[in-house]
Nucleic acid binder design. Structure first.
Lengths: 158, 158
DNA sequence: GCTTGATCTAAAGTTAGCTTCAGATATTAA
DNA sequence: TTAATATCTGAAGCTAACTTTAGATCAAGC
């Protein structure tokens, strides 16, 4: 197998449309793999472009960098991910997207009912139960509205 | 019309399942209306519970407090919102949800294609174009993938 | 009237996710 | 070889969205 060509941090930044500081930040955080040149500059396999793209998409979906790091852990760090590697991750991610769509659909329906009838309040609807609140209760789903899987909604609490 | 009963900050906090500090924060930020008792304590109309619920749901969807404040501006501050007030807001909000669902559906389709075929990179897919990046280009939609309306996806940049 | 718990204010602290800065070194182009 | 450009590090700065702290006042029950 031919050794993969390495590219500079500026190249990755340009190709992904982001600041160099962001790429450096991700590298420091261990979200993307990198090696060093003899002079000490970072060097990346081209496949990092795809990885950064994935990070940005997942972030846009509402995932924290910590969650994304965990998601990405299914990809190999030491070698360039194969199509099969990405397909595996894609499958997991697609399930997340589907769940999120389901949650939003449910939210839509609930809002139509709740706001429409004038009862929008936690006492009756519990539309927005968050991860940590549910977790604080102990085990699994504590949602009053079982259709709203907050796990797949954006959480704003630490 | 009978004067609406006022409740304490602790009451709102309990009913919405949040910390008192959060309710105070929202009040200070002008997200929820409040008056003062003769002693200086905050007092809220009961309808604030609904308003807080809405804020939490919208936050969960990925809106910033600034955006939510703007959304809520269609509700009257000086009187308790009627069902018609909420219905109006609900309509706008529902459109946002629908758009977000559409964006996620498109993302799902694109990912299936892009990750599946191994081309996930900005050079070809541009799945994650964000608000500010598009805005920085000047006018309206600059998205290469027109189906992905990032306006309705969660943005992580300031 | 007194004690207890709720609330007040202002300021400082916290976390995530970055960017900016300053001064030094690396790399590239001519 | 030399000038211009890119990158490096570590530390500090920044914004959003809150929480915490400290010391003081309010409100409610006995």
């Amino acid at each position: 197998m031919a050794p993969e060509p390495l590219v500079s941090i500026g190249f990755i930044a340009k190709r992904t449309g982001n600041a160099v500081s962001l790429i450096r930040y991700y590298a420091n955080e261990g979200l993307i793999p990198s090696v060093r040149t003899s002079g000490g500059n970072r060097a990346f396999p081209r496949s990092v472009i795809r990885r950064v793209s994935f990070i940005l998409i997942a972030q846009n979906m509402g995932y924290s960098l910590a969650q994304i790091k965990s998601l990405l852990s299914t990809l190999p760090d030491s070698r360039t991910p194969t199509q099969a590697d990405w397909a595996k991750l894609s499958k997991v991610f697609n399930e997340y997207i589907e769940a999120k769509i389901a949650a939003l659909t449910s939210l839509k329906t609930s809002l139509e009912g709740c706001i429409g009838c004038g009862c929008l309040s936690l006492e009756r609807c519990r539309l927005y139960n968050t991860d940590d609140k549910a977790a604080a209760q102990g085990s699994g789903a504590q949602l009053l509205d079982e259709n709203v899987q907050s796990q797949f909604l954006v959480s704003h609490k630490k």
